[in-house]
Design a protein around this nucleic acid. Sequence first.
DNA 1: CGGAATGTTGAACCGTTTCAAACGGAGTGG
DNA 2: CCACTCCGTTTGAAACGGTTCAACATTCCG
Lengths: 232, 232
Amino acid sequence: MIDQLALHDLISAEDRVAFYELPYSSRQFEAGTYLLRDGEITSHCAILVSGIAYRHKVTSDGSRQIVSICLPGEVINLQQLYLDEADNNVQALNQCQISFISHAALRRLVNQRPSIARAFFASTLVELSMSREWMLSIGRRDARARVAHFLCEIALRLNIDGVPDGTSYELPMTQEQLGDALGLTAVHINRMIMGLVKDNLITRRKHGITIPSWERLVQAAGFNSRYLKLNG
Amino acid sequence: MIDQLALHDLISAEDRVAFYELPYSSRQFEAGTYLLRDGEITSHCAILVSGIAYRHKVTSDGSRQIVSICLPGEVINLQQLYLDEADNNVQALNQCQISFISHAALRRLVNQRPSIARAFFASTLVELSMSREWMLSIGRRDARARVAHFLCEIALRLNIDGVPDGTSYELPMTQEQLGDALGLTAVHINRMIMGLVKDNLITRRKHGITIPSWERLVQAAGFNSRYLKLNG
DNA sequence: CGGAATGTTGAACCGTTTCAAACGGAGTGG
DNA sequence: CCACTCCGTTTGAAACGGTTCAACATTCCG
């Protein structure tokens, strides 16, 4: 099943059927395995059907920056459909199910069906928009707001219709990974999370996050959901 | 003239002609004027024909992050072709000439000509790739490497065939703007630039940057051009 | 159960910021 | 042509946010 592909509302029912009829294969990957490797040249597009993954890059002296979180429905390596080599890595955070569709088949479909091309284009534009907001976070928000903002973003992307007070979700990331995502140290992430818990902006159980008051967390984060383009 | 649109090599000669025949209008903008405003809904795509601009976002408490530099050939607001509202600002750094093409005309063309759709898609993917590297800079490189890396990127984007030693270019940015681009303070930018000059990694005259040794600057920056996808 | 990975806490340190003051160049008006 | 102002650059000193290192607690997992 590749139902979860976020084809937005831009795609017609007929085109959706055409998409679903493409031949594909499916595989499971354990937490920690690479779904895409820097330097790799792929022949298939990989769609994340279930699970969570992260995309990261590494500097020449070895420090790592996570540049995005991949949620179900996203094509992990759309870039390689038109640009040759991958310049980033994608790694599974928990058990991930991936569907593969050959570049050839997808290119053919995209050339024949403008509405599908448009859907891919739009999803890439949203990704670009998210990465701009991510830059704003890393560059200009202090550590506390950065963590809060990240938690807001994930909450909303997992609950696209809104985040009622008391919403909780699983965030299968270590504090080290959070640090790499937000340009901070694991130690400092820990202190910030502790702070958020102390101020009752979130509560935790293992990797489960609960948000008692969406409004207060949004306030602490300076979060504005507009950049996620959720409402078509 | 909208010749400079970076349509890559992906587009056929025939399609290029079709593109150039689209009706468009052209205008000049002074340094400092907004070419795109947060919240704006546009009916035309704007192509930067000459001049340099920057794209930025602002946090809820007013600090600014520049998220990309726009060079000639780029479509400034491609995002608004498929997503409604702009969520970022674009401002001219020097005198800019902009060509406008209506969304309607461009959509029609893109629907009819897959190779043009592909070119826009590819250029968006490159922009995404650049923004990922930018995140890596802001998140994980120290101030000196960040400045050096930025100077490398601009040098290479302006001289896509390579940067021979002694290359120089105009960078019409204040140190405050550089700070906003790199997530630093104007004061600290100044110290870092001073340091680069002292170590003879760059020389300056007003806003002109000269690179005596590309290799040494690349070394200081930890720069790898791969993410720019310059070679098709 | 035992060992490794992750989370927590404290203290010292350091890169960057902040604040403040001086400097230089470009443009303006007298 | 000089005096004045404005904006951006330069420099110094103090303060701060986040890092580093190190030790210990906890959870995870075979």
